[in-house]
Simulated assay, not measured.
Amino acid sequence: MEDTEITEIKRPANIHKHYHAHIYFDPQTLTFATSLCQQAGELFDLKVGRIHQKAVGPHPMWSCQISFTDSDFDKFIPWLDAQRNGLTIFVHGNTGDNLKDHTEYAYWLGESVELNLAMFGA
């Protein structure tokens, strides 16, 4: 029997004032992800960033950032989880400490992926 390490994926928790949700996608899911981001912005009146068709910053996949607050959290996160249709979504606190925001305050809807933390001095 092989030893396998089981890593628990941290689900989003409403413990910060400000958040970013990064919707990850690829060429096959671009249209769906674009629609999802637009819907989120319209339904919840949230700031939606650009649809990046390349890896940007610490994100290893194509992505779109959605900014939201603790007052949006309890309605937005369950909606996003229900609508994501298998996409991985990285959610993190936006506290001003980039390294902590992308490690200690990192949460996932779907599978987690390894971030490029070198830019934060990690």
Rank of each mutant, 00 (worst) to 15 (best):
H16P: 02
T31I: 13
N116W: 10
L46I: 08
F90M: 02
N85C: 09
A33E: 07
V91E: 01
H59R: 00
H102P: 07
G110I: 10
T29W: 06
C37Q: 10
E8R: 12
E5V: 15
F32W: 05
D74C: 01
C64D: 10
Q65K: 14
C37W: 05
E2K: 12
F120S: 00
I77G: 04
D70L: 07
I66V: 15
I66K: 09
L87A: 09
T95L: 11
Q65I: 11
I89C: 06
G49S: 01
K54Q: 11
H22I: 02
F73D: 12
S35W: 08
D72R: 01
L43A: 02
Y105C: 09
A106C: 02
P58C: 13
D72S: 06
W108Q: 07
I51T: 10
I23H: 07
E8A: 11
P60I: 04
F73I: 08
G57I: 09
M61D: 13
G49V: 00
L99E: 08
A21R: 12
I23S: 04
A13D: 05
D101T: 07
V113Q: 14
E104V: 09
F120A: 00
D3W: 05
R50K: 11
H102D: 03
T69M: 06
D70G: 11
S67L: 10
K100S: 11
E104Y: 04
L46Y: 04
E5H: 13
I23D: 06
A13T: 11
R11F: 01
F90L: 03
G93I: 04
V91N: 01
L117I: 02
Q53V: 10
S71L: 10
N98C: 01
T34P: 00
E104R: 11
E114R: 14
D74K: 11
Q53L: 05
H52A: 05
T29D: 04
N14L: 05
P12W: 03
L115F: 13
I89N: 01
F76C: 06
E5Q: 14
L87I: 08
Q65T: 15
I66L: 06
Q53W: 00
S112Y: 10
K75V: 06
E111K: 15
P12N: 03
G41M: 07
